[in-house]
C-alpha cells in the first residue's frame, strides 16, 4: 500500500527522487528484525517528515541510509537505499558523507571537549581544508550568531546552542541531503520553534533536502511538505503534510487526542487508543 501512495508524491512524477529507500529490511546482531519492508522517497529540495512512536524504527531508518548501521552491528538484509542513482547499501559512512548525505544524530553528539570552532572544522573533515572552509565557518556563524560568541568548550553550551552547533557542523560538509534525527529533543517550545525555523531556512536558502525524524509531529508537519508515519518497522501511512494534519488517525495518535472534545476526566479515561490503523 505504501508503494501505491508513493506514485502520488508530487515530485515523483517529474523526476527520480534524490533518495529512494526500497523495501528495506534491517536486522541487528543477525537476529533482531527492526525494519520490515520499509519504503520511502525524498524528492530533491523538499523537507520530508518521518514520524512515529518510540521504537518504531525511525532512527534505524536514518542509520540505514547514512551507513551508521554498520557501526552498531546492524545490517540491511533486503532492499536498496538509492541516492542520486547510486546504491548506498554497502558503502561505509565516510563514503556516504562524501557523496553529500549527512546525518545529524539524535542527541546532537557534538564533541564536548572541543571548541565550537574545532567542532565546525571537524564537520568539514571530508573536504580539503582550505580557505573555503574558513568562509563556510563564517557562513555558519551568519546563521547562528550566538555560536560565534561562545569561545569555551562546546560541552558547556546550552541544549539549544548544541543543536545549532550540530546543524552548523552538518552544513560544513556541504551536504545535499541532511538526515535530521529529533532536532527538538530536550528543547523548550520556544527553542523548538527557532530550530524548525532554521531548518526551513536552510531548505529555502541553500536548497538542502531534508529527511526529518521527529516526535513533535505538529512542528514537523508544519515545515515538511510530505510525511510518512511508521509503526513497528513499516510505513503505515503517508501523504502530503496537509493531508496528514487533517487525517483523523494522525490527529488521534500524534497531534493530541482528537482536539476539542476532551473536556472532562471522564472523557480522558474512556479515551481508548485504537490498536490498528487499517
Amino acid at each position: 500500500m505504501a508503494e501505491a501512495a508513493i506514485a502520488e508524491t508530487p515530485a515523483a512524477e517529474a523526476q527520480a527522487p534524490l533518495l529512494a529507500v526500497n523495501n528495506i529490511e534491517v536486522v541487528y546482531n543477525d537476529v533482531i528484525l527492526v525494519l520490515r519492508g520499509l519504503s520511502l522517497e525524498v524528492p530533491k529540495g523538499r523537507i520530508v517528515a518521518l514520524l512515529g512512536a518510540n521504537g518504531a524504527g525511525k532512527s534505524t531508518t536514518l542509520k540505514a541510509i547514512s551507513g551508521l548501521l554498520k557501526t552498531e552491528d546492524g545490517e540491511i538484509t533486503r532492499g536498496t537505499v538509492v541516492y542520486d542513482g547510486q546504491v548506498l547499501n554497502a558503502m561505509d559512512p565516510g563514503a556516504i558523507v562524501r557523496r553529500g548525505v549527512f546525518q545529524v544524530m539524535e542527541g546532537r553528539r557534538i564533541i564536548q571537549d572541543m571548541t565550537v570552532h574545532e567542532n565546525l572544522r571537524l564537520g568539514a573533515h571530508t573536504r580539503p581544508h582550505d580557505s573555503q572552509v574558513a568562509r563556510d565557518i563564517q557562513m555558519v556563524y551568519g546563521y547562528f550568531p550566538r555560536l560565534k560568541e561562545r569561545t569555551g568548550l562546546a560541552g558547556y553550551l546550552s541544549g539549544g546552542e548544541q543543536q545549532m552547533l550540530a546543524i552548523g557542523r552538518a552544513l560544513m560538509a556541504r551536504p545535499r541531503l541532511i538526515l535530521m534525527d529529533e532536532p527538538s529533543m530536550g528543547l523548550s517550545p520556544l527553542l523548538v520553534r527557532e530550530v524548525f525555523g532554521i531548518i526551513r531556512k536552510l531548505n529555502e536558502d541553500l536548497g538542502i533536502t531534508i529527511l526529518l525524524v521527529e516526535q513533535n509531529a505538529r512542528m514537523a508537519l508544519e515545515v515538511a511538505s510530505y510525511g510518512y508515519i511508521m509503526e513497528s518497522g513499516k510505513v503505515v501511512l503517508d501523504g502530503t503534510a496537509d493531508d496528514l494534519r487533517t487525517n483523523e488517525d494522525v490527529k488521534e495518535f500524534y497531534l493530541g487526542g482528537g482536539g476539542e472534545q476532551r473536556k472532562s476526566f471522564k472523557n480522558i479515561k474512556s479515551f481508548k487508543r485504537r490498536k490498528r490503523w487499517l
Partner: peptide
Amino acid sequence: SKTGLAMRATAFDQQAAQSLGIS
C-alpha cells in the same frame, strides 16, 4: 591538523566521528 582533530573526535565519540565521515 585535520587528522589530529579527527583523532580527538574519535577519542571522544567514535560513532559521532564516523557520522562526520571520519574513518
